[in-house]
Write a protein that binds this DNA or RNA. Sequence first.
RNA 1: GGCCCUAUCGUCUAUCGGUUAGGACAUAGCCUUCUCAAGGCUAGAAGCGCGGUUCGAUUCCGCGUAGGGUCACCA
Length: 493
Amino acid sequence: MHTNPGTKKIVTRFAPSPTGFMHVGGVRTALYAWLTARKHDGTFILRIEDTDKEREVEGSIEHIIASLSWLGITWDEGPDIGGPHASYIQSERLHLYRMYAEKLIEKGFAYADPYSEAELENFRLKADMEKRPFLYRDYRPDNPPLWDGTTPLRFKVPELKRYEWHDEVWGDLSAGPEALDDFILIKSDGYPTYNFAHIVDDIEMGITHVLRGQEFISSTPKFLSIYEALGIQHPVYATLPPIMAPDGKKKLGKRDGAKDILEYRAEGYTPDAMINFLALLGWNPGDDREIFSRDDLINNFSLEKVQRSGAQLSDDKLNWLNKEHLKLMSENVRNEEIYSRLIQNPTLAGNNKLDDKPFISKLYPIIFDRISTWGDIDKLVSGGELSYFFDAPQYDVTMLSWKGESPKEEIKKHLTWVCEALQSGQSDVFQSPESVKSLLFDYATENGRGQVLWPTRVALSGRDKSPDPFTLIYILGKDESVERLHTAIGLLA
RNA sequence: GGCCCUAUCGUCUAUCGGUUAGGACAUAGCCUUCUCAAGGCUAGAAGCGCGGUUCGAUUCCGCGUAGGGUCACCA
């Protein structure tokens, strides 16, 4: 980092526009800015850039707040909590943009745009036909009218020159005068453009580090020319690489099916895993570590290690990471989450086994092994993969035959033996899968494990895939296991 | 098209001129095993191309190629 810690308190911001939900792209930008602030004991500000009233979507601010809150990305100043630079909503700061605009007019760096939109369109078409880029400054009026606020206010580029600047991520960058133009500062509806408003706010709010996506690199010379016209030093820039859509073809965007970040919450990802995942999408610690807690991230994050090339979004690693984070949680918390998912699942509604806590607790490890997100629990239940724990299984008799080879009489003989063994078993036998196993294992080995264990397992679960029969017996208990074995024997008669 | 930028396994990435190019996800196989799951082990898998600099280039430079971004009264 170029700034000396200690010299100046670091202030970063996340400044989304309220145009709908947030996807991983925006969230990662917020995350990196947040991490940068937190790492240096700085300030993180949330600011809403609502200067485009056309594109504004109702409820977006709440949605943004909900998304960041879910992820535990906390801000020190923002629209909901206020702060020394309130308001944090641009539409409530119009007087400030006006003030800065007047300043530029005074200095001769801003003027009223006299052209109609149709006239502008003509200029553009003409430039297009001549195969040269359209630049408004080529048409800069000699004697612009006084600005009365009903026409756009344009910036007058102070000097056409090559700008060079430093970016914490990309290093030294530069762009020639062709990147400069007389862009609009204040629109005819009275609202400032992004190009102008964000600069005013960053100045007013004392932002020291601006982190944003690389779509802004090419307009940086414009920003620099404004700072220059105002005679104010620009903040440190740190440009983030794009996140690419899963097909790797282009930048992830809402139009290409980018997911609402809150959908991840609904699917049962944990905020810690999500943050870990997003942090790694474009940043790495420089070594082999992959699993980071929130604090690890804050301590290890650095802009220098941020990637320059775009990273493709892929859920595989997220699923793995989520599982790893689930493993890090305490067993109690995990079990509570599993339980609440079970009782909320409609397919199990009203099942009285849900009230049998000792029974349910035996189910926890079985379920935990089979999920990578909390939402997977619902999939297991809905997919019927756990239904035999709650209700007597339904299955075809032929399934009792291992590989379809064993004669009925033999299956019946084995099941009867198992049944009797269980009935004569003392209660301590049913205290663990291991003790159940020791009760049945020798017989199974002598008579062919497949021949004995397969039909036993099917009799208990009714499924070709399930946990092993010892575990099933342990979970279901002596009585229910015996009952199910009897049912199977009956089917074979 | 102009301008800006990027380029290592399928994916995320390590390497700050000298490595058998490392790790992780994913994939495959094996072990465990009546079947799943979980777990353990193993394997395959990469420097876009051509020049140049250098004793030596994945690494530095140029060109090409490919990809991305941007050229709004959107942010």
